[in-house]
Design a protein around this nucleic acid. Structure first.
Lengths: 150, 150
DNA sequence: CATCATTATTTGCATTTACAAATAATGATG
DNA sequence: CATCATTATTTGTAAATGCAAATAATGATG
């Protein structure tokens, strides 16, 4: 393995960390954090998600998510409800206050995307996104082999 | 802003987290962690780096790095030395034990790169890396405007 | 050489994080 | 319907993290 800046996981982490740090700093005055934004963004896409689903989408470990949601509930941003279909599960719903905060965060998030992709044309930007999706899917190969059901 | 999976920072974090989690799990039996690997990899590229430099290259916050290095020193992987040129700075050096651990981690790291880029040809892989470097550089625009010196 | 602004690292401390174990509910199976 | 394996979430607890303040050393400046 040669220089760090030819190593993909390094480049990925470096870029991700830099966006994350800058974004965190920027939303702090609004009383938000990056993790809160991730949850709100996931619920904005689809409200009433379960904890497990939310954990998967946000890449936040479930036990961490539980406590993050505790805090968001205290702030009145979301509400836990027992899932109608399966009472083991908890469905999370945004409140009006949560929606208002989301509305303030979306433009910031959009700006980050714009800045990050400055100088990329539409084709290049889409190629990058496609590559990242592909990369994510490729990692299936390293997952603990799942027991087959049935 | 539309669906999450069209949002670049989301894709970036998702891919990065997935690699990070899998890698962490895999190196745990060796007594290593992802952060330890990051430090060792940076020192492998260039030994005797200062803490600040190391923090920048690894994306680990300096105060966190200090304590991480404390632990690595206790494990005998690295040694702190006062920087020759500037006694305010601390230069970090790998020990033989650190080198041995690095040698065991490199093949694992290489495998991660291979798996992540499965199905990419050389041109596509290089394009992705170039895009990530570019994206990282683009974030300069959001940095707190630095006071000019002189 | 004392003072002072600057830079590099460490420490204090409160919060966040993650693994593992505990709890809660489901859906068979007998 | 009691039992049991399975799935979803939470809790216990120790370690990692990050901001802010403290410490240490430098390099002018007088």
């Amino acid at each position: 393995m040669g220089p760090l800046d030819g190593y993909l996981p390094y480049l990925l982490n470096r870029a991700g960390s830099r966006i994350a740090t800058a974004f965190s700093e920027e939303v702090r005055p609004l009383g938000a954090t990056l993790q809160i934004w991730r949850v709100l963004a996931a619920l904005r896409e689809r409200d009433g998600r379960r904890m497990g689903d939310l954990s998967e989408t946000t890449s936040i470990e479930v036990s961490t998510l539980t406590r993050l949601v505790d805090g968001m509930e205290k702030k009145g941003l979301v509400a836990r409800r027992r899932d109608a279909a399966d009472a083991r599960a908890v469905a999370l719903h945004v409140t009006p206050a949560g929606r208002r905060l989301t509305q303030r965060l979306v433009p910031i998030a959009e700006r980050y995307e714009t800045v990050a992709l400055a100088g990329f044309n539409a084709v290049e930007a889409e190629a990058l996104k496609a590559a990242l999706r592909r990369l994510y899917a490729n990692m299936d190969a390293l997952e603990k082999p799942q027991r087959l059901r049935g």
